[in-house]
Design a protein around this nucleic acid. Sequence first.
DNA 1: TCACTCATGTAACAGGTTACATGATTCC
DNA 2: GGAATCATGTAACCTGTTACATGAGTGA
Lengths: 181, 181
Amino acid sequence: MALEHAILVSLDERPGTGYELARRFDKSIGFFWAATHQQIYRTLKRMDDLRWVTAEEVAQDGRPDKKVYRVSPEGRQELQRWLRETGEPATVRHDLAVKIRGASLGDPRAVAEEVARHRRHHAERLDVYRAIEKKDFPDPSALHGRRLHQHLVLRGGIKAEEALLEWCDEVLAAMREDDPR
Amino acid sequence: MALEHAILVSLDERPGTGYELARRFDKSIGFFWAATHQQIYRTLKRMDDLRWVTAEEVAQDGRPDKKVYRVSPEGRQELQRWLRETGEPATVRHDLAVKIRGASLGDPRAVAEEVARHRRHHAERLDVYRAIEKKDFPDPSALHGRRLHQHLVLRGGIKAEEALLEWCDEVLAAMREDDPR
DNA sequence: TCACTCATGTAACAGGTTACATGATTCC
DNA sequence: GGAATCATGTAACCTGTTACATGAGTGA
């Protein structure tokens, strides 16, 4: 499991509450590792039990108390151990591919519409990534260390979305030619 | 959940046992939908209860009895219903991206080695996909219906692996330049 | 007044992973 | 003799998803 490790990386960049982490997982780090707030609270509790993080309770007025989590030395050690580990590429599960493969058992036009929906989604996502790149990494060749690594991950997102977008276009063109309306 | 639907698509192409399905999920359909034999047996039982498939027990000599599953009319209906459904793109979880983003908190060279391992994996996978394309789809422009859809899914796999391969190369080049040995 | 944000959680369930178990046959 | 193949499963556990719950403050 890498959720713990994704949290360690994120908390090392900057300490935060479960709530804040949940929002980071809705963007930035969440672009390549999805997690809901329930998963995050549950995992933070476990990490606290393991002493990978320390929690500092902060009272606030007019707001519920919050727990600010920080990575502990043990947590940093665990992260280093995990970074040295080898692992297999993620097993993929693409609903859309299953739908395309089964298209002729149902209504191929409905499947083509679904592909078009996904195309729009990937185009939007790609725009978001490119906007982030332009804003946060205007001069990529000057990057080093952590900033370089952050940019490289973003580059992965851009490449993946580009490939998905091209694929959707290829599928749509081929299906349109197979069944011109 | 789409495992049921992936099984329906696969069984519609050709009936088979849980064991056979498990092996199909090690290749072809498994390239874009992973499943273990335990998941498949469990799911087939549920699908049998729901009457989406019918099981025919076949006695064999020298071999354990087997159950050959076929898609039922109800199963075909369920598949058609699902094909008309809309869904969101799969939520991704890339360990490797988390490792790259955290590289500077550990040993960046160890992470680079891990990227190189993944690069080899993707290169192999791409070779496999291209070999299948050459063998099974020598004339893509002549394809229609089911065969066309099968080819389009394979194209998705090829595009995804190409993108991952390029990304690994980009990451390796950038990390090497950042930390020349 | 109503929706949204901040902040944390419980509970139930669905889905996925890992380990273990059985037993004959075929191939090296 | 030992490994791989065919064939099916149980059990325990870990992860992930969905729904529900609370409660104050902020802004339209």
